[in-house]
Design a protein around this nucleic acid. Structure first.
Length: 1018
RNA sequence: GCUGAAGUGGUGGAAUUGGUAGACACGUUGGACUUAAAAUCCAAUGUCCAUUAGGACGUACGGGUUCAAGUCCCGUCUUCAGUACCA
C-alpha cells in the first residue's frame, strides 16, 4: 500500500474539524498554555510559503504541549483593517469589507490545508464591529484617564478633576503636556467648561495635539515614510512636505520607564529587548534653559553684555546628557520647525532662514537622520546668553536637529559631539576645547570616560561625573536648569487620514472632543461613495453623508441635521493599524462575549500569552504598543497582568530563490550610426538567450575574446550571415531577466516549452532562441538551458513566489511542514528552494514503508532489540530537547536518522514504532494520525502522552577516541569508557600509529580528556 | 547615520560547556533495476597534491588567547532588517 498523502490529509483535517479536536476550554484540571502567532493581515495575494513558517513552528509547539498534558489555547484571526484593502478600494471602487472577506476566505482555505491545530471557534477580526466595539471602548478609557506619577499608574480622570476642584494643579505630579499654566481651585471652578476641557486634554492619556506629518498636497493625504521614495510619493511621484496637523496622540511616554523595566521580567531574545531599549532611549542628564538676548544685543560689543539684564523675552530649553561640557557651548542649534525661530530671527537673516526652513520641509525625517555628510544650516541672527559666563551664543537652525526629539533644540558643544563639531567646522564657528590633554584638531572627543574638564570656570579639573553633578547644582541655584531623565520615546500618533480603520467614538462640541457613551458602541464605519480624501483635503470620512452624532437620540444621523445644539459632527480620522492589534490576545480568551471584551474568569484563567511567535519587524511597533495598552489596562483594573507576552520568538523570513534567463543585448562603439545600418540584423538577433554557465564559466563576455568569437559565429548563423565579420564591432551584454521559478527544475534547467505556453508571458518567448549549456541552439533535447539563481525577497514582481497550495497538492501538507522546518533555524533568514522538498518527502515515504508493507502492516508485538531501543531513546531525547529549544530543523534530521536506522535494523516492534509516531505527530500530524490509527487506536494521536526518555538505553561501554597530534586529528582508537587516564596514555603511546606520527620524538605533553579526546603535543 | 542580525562545500544547513569541521538533505557523477521513463536502491562527492599509503589547505578577512578555536577576545569587510502613517 502506497503513501496516499492527499487522501490521508483530507481525511484527518475533516476529522479534526468535525470532532473539534483542538477546541480549548476555559477551565480545566490541566495546566494552561497559550500559544499565539502574530496577527496576519489577509492580503489579496494569499499566502506564500514564507508566511506559514511561524505558524508551523507554533503549531508544533502547541501539539507538543498537548502531548505533555497541557490545556492549550492556540487561536487564529485577522488584523483585517489596513492600507492595501483601502488602496484596492480606491482603484476599483469595491468596498474594502468585501475584498477583505474574500481574502480571508482564501487565507482560511490555505491555512486549513496545512493542518494547523487552531481553535477556530475563537477567531477574531479587527474590522468586525463586534470586535472594534471594544477597541473603541478602550480608546474611551484612555481618554478618561491620566497618569499620576505619585501612584505611578493611570487613574480615572475624575480623580484629577477632584484635585483641581479642591486645590488647583500646583501639587499635581502628572505626565502631561509641557508648559501648563498653574491655576488654583478657585480658578478652576471659575473656568468655562471649554477651558476646563482644554486643560484636561493636556493630561489625558489620549489627547489632541499638533503633530508633524508627511503631507502630499497632490494626493491630498498624509503618507507614511514608507510611501515616500527619494522625497516624492511612491504613487505618482508627487512632492511631499512636512506639515503640522491636529491629531490624536497616545501618551505612551508616561509608560517609558515601566516599558523599560518590564523587559527584565520577560523571556524575549536580547536583540529584541535591545531594540526596545534603544527605542525607549532613556538618557540621564539635565535640562538647561538659555535666555535669548533681545535683538539689540547682537549689535552691541561683547564688553557691554552686562548692561542688559531686564527684558528677556524668550527662553530656549535644551536637554543634554553632558551638563559637564556646558562651558564648551559655542552655539545653539534649533530644529528649523522650532516655534521660536520665527520670533527670534533678525530682519537681516529672515530671508535666509525662511529659505532654509522651506528646503528642510521637503526632506523626510529619515533622510535627515541618515544623511550626516551634507551639513546645512542657517544663522538666525539671534543670540542666547550662557547661563554662567553670560557670553552671547549665536543661535543657528540646522536640519540635523529634529523637532520631534526632546525639545527640538540642542546646546552645541563641538569639542564633545561629532555632529556639532562638523557643523562648527562647516560654518567656521569656534570650537573651544574644554578637555584637558585631548587633541580635537581632527575630531570631537565624545567619550565620557577618562575626561578632565578644563577651561570651564568652576568645573575645571573635575571628571564627567563630578562636573555634571556640580553643573546641575549650579544651574538649579540660578533657576536655569535641573537634573532630568529624558526618553527618546515619543507619544504615538493615533489618527490616520484613512477610511479602512476603526472610527473614533468621538464628536465635537464647540471644537472640543466628546466621547460617545459605551452603551452606544460600536460606532460603525459609514458608507462613502469614494475612498479618497475630499477635495478640501479632509479624510475620506469627510465624504460620508450620514456622519453626525445626535445627542438626543444617541445615534449617527445625517450631516444635514448638524445644528451644533443637539447634533454634532463626528471625528473624520480613523484609528491606526496598531489599535486593533494591541489587545486582540485578550479577545481570544473569550471571543464571543457581548458584555465585555473578555470575562474576568477567562482573563484570570489564561492570564497572558506563554509563547508568541512572529517577525522581528514588529519589535518597536506592535510589541511596544501592546505592552503599553496592557499596562494601562492593568492600571485601570481591566486585566490582571503587566506584560502580555511571556516568551517571544522571532521567526526569520523565508526568501525567494529567483531564476534568471540571460537575454543578449547589443551595443555598438558608435551607436547612432551603426544601430541604424544594422537595424535589420539586430532585429534577427533580438530574442536570444544564453545559458547561465555558457558565460559564467568563460568569464565576462566583454573581455573574453575567444569565447566572444565563438558566440558571434553562432549569432551570424542565426541571422543567416555567411560569416561573423559584420558583427565585428558588436558588443554583447547578457541581460538578466526574471523567469517564473515554476518553470525551473531541481537542476536549474529551464522548461522552455512550459515557458512558451505561459499565459502571461508565453508570447514574449514564442520566437525566442535558447543557447544551451553545451553552446548549442536548443531544438528538442539536444541541449539544456540553465538559469542563474539569486536569493531575493519573495515577491510577485520577482516571479519567485511559491504558493503552498501547489506544494500541498504535489507533496502534501506534512512534507510542507517538515520542509519549512528543515530549511534551517527558525529565527534565521533562509532562501526557499522547492527542489529540496524531495528530501523530506522521500523521508515520509520511507517512514510509511517502515510501517506499511505491500501486504499490510509491518508492525507487531516482537520484543525490541537493544539497537531498536537505543535509536528510539536517543530520538526521544534529541527531539524533546530540540522542541524545548525551538530547534525544529535538527529534529527533522533526527527523524530521518531514526527511520534510516530502524529500516536498516528491520524493526517491526510496536513498542518502538508507536512512540516514534507520537514524537513525529507535532511535525507531520496527518501521517502520524493515519499510522496511529492503523496500529489500532480509535482516538486522535493528539491525546497520546509524549514518550518518556530512558537514559539506560544509551549507556556506552566504549568510546572511539580521536587521537590528535598538536591539535590535529590523525586517527581514532576504540577504548573502554571506564579506562583510567594513565591506562589511556599508555595504550595510546604504545600504539604503532602513534610511534609512526612521533617518528622517535618524545612528546612534551599528553592531554587526555576522558570520554572526549587525546592530544599529544611535541 | 543610528540600532539589531547574519557570513561554514556547488546549495540549505549540522557541530552540548572550546575537544574528530561538513551530520541530515538537495544537487552532481557512476552503477543496479526497466524496452524506456518515472519511482526505488547502492556507491562516491570540501579544495588541492599523490598511483596508493598519505599529505597540505580549509568555517567572510586580518590579528590574538589556548595543548586544542567555526565556537573566546580585538580590528576590518560584506549582506539583510528596523528607523515612529506598510502590517
Amino acid at each position: 500500500m502506497q503513501y496516499q498523502f492527499n487522501e490521508i490529509e483530507a481525511k484527518w483535517q475533516k476529522y479534526w474539524a468535525e470532532n473539534k479536536t483542538f477546541q480549548a476550554i476555559n477551565h480545566s484540571e490541566k495546566p494552561k498554555y497559550y500559544v499565539l502567532d502574530m496577527f496576519p493581515y489577509p492580503s489579496g495575494a494569499g499566502l506564500h510559503v514564507g508566511h506559514p513558517l511561524g505558524y508551523i513552528a507554533s503549531d508544533i509547539y502547541s501539539r507538543y504541549k498537548r502531548h505533555k498534558g497541557f490545556n492549550v489555547l492556540h487561536p487564529q484571526g485577522y488584523d483585517s483593517f489596513g492600507l492595501p484593502a483601502e488602496q484596492y478600494a480606491i482603484q476599483t471602487g469595491q468596498h474594502p469589507a468585501l475584498t477583505t472577506e474574500e481574502n480571508i476566505k482564501t487565507y482560511r482555505r490555505q491555512l486549513d490545508q496545512i493542518g494547523f491545530s487552531f481553535d477556530w471557534s475563537r477567531e477574531v477580526r479587527t474590522s468586525d464591529p463586534s470586535y472594534y466595539k471594544w477597541t473603541q471602548w478602550i480608546f474611551i478609557q484612555l481618554f478618561e484617564s491620566w497618569y499620576n506619577n505619585d501612584s505611578n499608574k493611570a487613574e480615572e480622570i475624575s480623580t484629577l478633576i477632584n484635585i483641581f476642584t479642591l486645590e488647583g494643579n500646583a501639587n499635581v505630579n502628572a505626565v502631561c503636556d509641557d508648559n501648563i499654566d498653574p491655576f488654583t481651585a478657585e480658578d478652576w471652578n471659575n473656568f468655562s467648561s471649554k477651558k476646563q476641557q482644554e486643560i484636561l486634554l493636556q493630561y489625558r492619556l489620549t489627547y489632541l495635539a499638533e503633530t508633524e506629518v508627511n503631507w502630499c498636497p497632490a494626493l491630498g493625504t498624509v503618507l507614511a515614510n514608507d510611501e515616500i521614495i527619494n522625497g516624492v510619493s511612491e504613487r505618482g511621484g508627487h512632492s511631499v512636505i512636512r506639515k503640522k496637523m491636529t491629531q490624536w496622540s497616545m501618551r505612551i511616554s508616561a509608560y517609558a520607564e515601566r516599558l523599560l523595566q518590564g523587559l527584565d521580567s520577560i523571556d524575549w531574545n536580547d536583540s529584541l529587548k535591545e531594540s526596545q531599549k534603544n527605542w525607549i532611549g532613556k538618557s540621564v542628564g539635565a535640562s538647561v534653559t538659555f535666555n535669548v538676548l533681545p535683538n539689540v544685543v547682537a549689535e552691541r560689543s561683547r564688553s557691554e553684555h552686562d548692561v542688559i539684564s531686564t527684558t528677556l523675552n524668550h527662553q530656549i530649553e535644551v536637554f543634554t546628557t553632558r551638563p559637564d561640557t556646558i562651558f564648551g557651548v559655542s552655539f545653539m542649534t534649533l530644529a528649523p520647525e522650532h516655534e521660536l525661530v520665527s520670533q527670534i530671527v533678525t530682519d537681516e537673516q529672515k530671508a535666509e532662514v525662511e529659505a532654509y526652513i522651506l528646503a528642510t520641509s521637503k526632506r523626510s525625517e529619515r533622510d535627515r537622520m541618515a544623511d550626516v555628510k551634507t551639513i546645512s544650516g542657517a544663522f538666525t541672527g539671534a543670540y542666547a546668553e550662557h547661563p554662567f559666563s553670560k557670553e552671547p551664543i549665536p543661535i543657528w537652525i540646522g536640519d540635523y536637529v529634529l523637532a520631534g526629539y526632546g525639545t527640538g533644540a540642542v546646546m552645541s558643544v563641538p569639542c564633545g559631539d561629532q555632529r556639532d563639531y562638523d557643523f562648527a567646522k562647516h560654518f567656521s564657528i569656534p570650537i573651544p576645547n574644554i578637555f584637558e590633554g585631548v587633541d580635537i584638531t581632527e575630531e570631537a572627543y565624545a567619550s565620557k570616560d577618562n575626561v578632565v574638564i578644563a577651561n570651564s570656570d568652576f568645573l575645571s579639573g573635575l571628571n564627567y561625573k563630578k562636573a555634571s553633578k556640580l553643573a546641575i547644582y549650579e544651574l538649579e541655584k540660578l533657576g536655569q536648569g535641573e537634573g532630568k531623565t529624558n526618553y527618546r520615546l515619543r507619544d504615538a500618533v493615533f489618527s490616520r487620514q484613512r477610511y479602512w480603520g476603526e472610527p473614533f467614538p468621538v464628536y465635537y462640541v464647540n471644537g472640543m472632543p466628546q466621547m460617545i457613551d459605551k452603551a452606544h458602541l460600536p460606532i460603525r464605519l459609514p458608507g462613502v461613495e469614494k475612498y479618497l480624501p475630499t477635495e478640501t483635503g479632509e479624510p475620506p470620512l469627510g465624504r460620508a453623508d450620514v456622519w453626525a452624532w445626535d445627542t438626543k437620540q444617541c445615534s449617527v444621523v445625517s450631516n444635514q441635521l448638524i445644528d451644533n445644539e443637539t447634533v454634532f459632527p463626528l471625528e473624520l480620522n480613523t484609528m491606526p493599524g496598531w489599535a486593533g492589534s494591541s489587545w486582540y490576545f485578550f479577545r481570544y480568551m473569550d471571543a464571543q462575549n457581548n458584555l465585555d471584551f473578555a470575562s474576568e474568569e477567562a482573563l484570570k484563567y489564561w492570564e497572558n500569552v506563554d509563547l508568541y511567535i512572529g517577525g522581528s519587524e514588529h519589535a518597536t511597533g506592535h510589541l511596544l504598543y501592546s505592552r503599553f495598552w496592557v499596562k494601562f489596562m492593568k492600571d485601570r483594573g481591566f486585566v490582571g497582568i503587566e506584560e502580555p507576552f511571556k516568551k517571544l520568538i522571532n521567526q526569520g523570513m523565508i526568501l525567494g530563490t529567483s531564476a534568471f534567463a540571460y537575454r543578449l543585448s547589443y551595443m555598438f562603439a558608435n551607436p547612432k550610426e551603426e544601430e541604424k545600418t544594422n537595424a535589420k540584423l539586430l532585429k534577427k538577433l533580438e530574442n536570444i538567450y544564453i545559458s547561465h554557465s555558457e558565460f559564467s564559466s568563460k568569464g565576462d563576455l566583454k573581455s573574453n575574446k575567444l569565447y566572444l568569437k565563438e558566440l558571434k559565429v553562432k549569432l551570424a548563423k542565426i541571422a543567416g550571415l555567411q560569416d561573423a565579420d559584420a558583427l565585428e564591432n558588436l558588443m554583447i551584454v547578457p541581460l538578466p531577466i526574471h523567469v517564473k521559478v515554476q518553470y525551473v527544475n531541481a537542476s536549474d534547467e529551464l522548461d522552455i516549452e512550459g515557458l512558451k505556453k505561459d499565459g502571461e508571458f508565453g508570447e514574449d518567448y514564442k520566437s525566442a532562441i535558447f543557447i544551451g549549456e553545451k553552446g548549442e541552439i536548443i531544438e528538442g533535447d539536444n541541449d539544456v538551458y540553465k538559469v542563474g539563481r539569486e536569493v531575493e525577497k519573495m515577491s510577485k514582481s520577482k516571479y519567485n513566489v511559491v504558493n503552498p497550495d501547489s506544494i500541498c497538492e504535489q507533496y502534501g501538507a506534512d512534507s510542507l511542514r517538515l520542509y519549512e522546518m528543515f530549511l534551517g533555524p527558525l529565527e534565521q533568514y533562509k532562501p526557499w528552494n522547492t527542489a529540496g522538498i524531495t528530501g523530506v518527502h522521500g523521508f515520509l515515504k520511507k517512514l510509511w514503508k517502515l510501517y506499511v508493507g505491500e501486504n499490510g502492516l509491518n508492525v507487531n508485538d516482537t520484543e525490541p532489540t537493544k539497537d531498536n531501543l537505543k535509536t528510539l531513546h536517543k530520538t526521544i531525547k534529541k527531539v524533546e530537547e530540540d522542541i524545548e529549544n525551538f530547534s525544529f530543523n535538527t529534529s527533522v534530521s533526527t527523524f530521518m536518522i531514526a527511520v534510516n536506522e530502524l529500516t536498516a535494523q528491520k524493526c517491526t516492534s510496536k513498542q518502538v514504532l508507536e512512540p516514534l509516531l507520537v514524537l513525529l505527530s507535532p511535525y507531520a500530524p496527518h501521517i502520524a494520525e493515519e499510522l496511529y490509527n492503523k496500529l489500532g487506536h480509535n482516538e486522535s494521536i493528539s491525546t497520546a502522552e509524549f514518550p518518556i526518555f530512558d537514559a539506560s538505553h544509551l549507556v556506552e561501554s566504549s568510546k572511539n577516541y580521536p587521537i590528535s597530534f598538536n591539535g590535529k586529528m590523525r586517527f581514532t582508537l576504540e577504548l573502554p569508557m571506564d579506562m583510567s587516564k594513565e591506562d589511556i596514555e599508555a595504550t595510546v603511546m604504545a600504539h604503532e600509529k602513534t610511534q609512526e606520527q612521533l617518528q622517535g620524538r618524545t612528546p612534551k605533553k599528553v592531554i587526555i580528556v576522558p570520554g572526549k579526546i587525546v592530544n599529544i603535543v611535541g
